[in-house]
């Protein structure tokens, strides 16, 4: 999907951080991507290769940490794990499950030098 726009968002965050912290280069970019997030990690890596090419993060390793999906079953009134947005509650089999975690798309950390 819109991975190029997301990659440009990552680049902006790196450039803002570089301006504020004055580092020379970025060795690694640590991303936190939720299991239910609207992003394909491999496509994002590909786009990052392209958009980071002429920046302080050129050639940086891209590390993706996955955040597990979780929801709240409104019928069971308890937290349940979720692998897909349309997963049923593992306890009651119902679908009245609201997503509570796993949609994150964040730049968690930069390894800089």
């Amino acid at each position: 999907m819109h991975e190029m726009s997301l990659a440009e968002g990552v680049r902006t965050i790196i450039e803002d951080t570089a301006a504020a912290n004055g580092f020379r280069s970025v060795r690694a970019v640590v991303l936190e991507i939720g299991e239910l997030a609207a992003v394909e990690a491999d496509a994002l890596r590909f786009c990052l290769d392209v958009v980071l090419a002429d920046t302080v993060a050129a050639g940086a390793a891209i590390e993706v940490e996955t955040v597990p999906g979780a929801g709240w079953c409104m019928d069971c009134a308890q937290a349940v794990p979720m692998r897909e947005l349309h997963d049923a509650c593992p306890h009651c089999g119902g679908y009245r499950v609201q997503t509570t975690a796993g949609r994150e798309m964040r730049v968690k950390a930069l390894e800089v030098d």
């Binding site: 902006t12 965050i13 580092f23 730049v107 390894e111 800089v112 030098d113």
Partner: peptide
């Protein structure tokens, strides 16, 4: 020791939008 360090920035990729 080099100056390599981890900067924790915790910023949403779509934060600007």
């Amino acid at each position: 020791l080099s100056q390599v360090q981890m900067l924790r920035i915790e910023r949403d990729i779509l934060g600007k939008n």
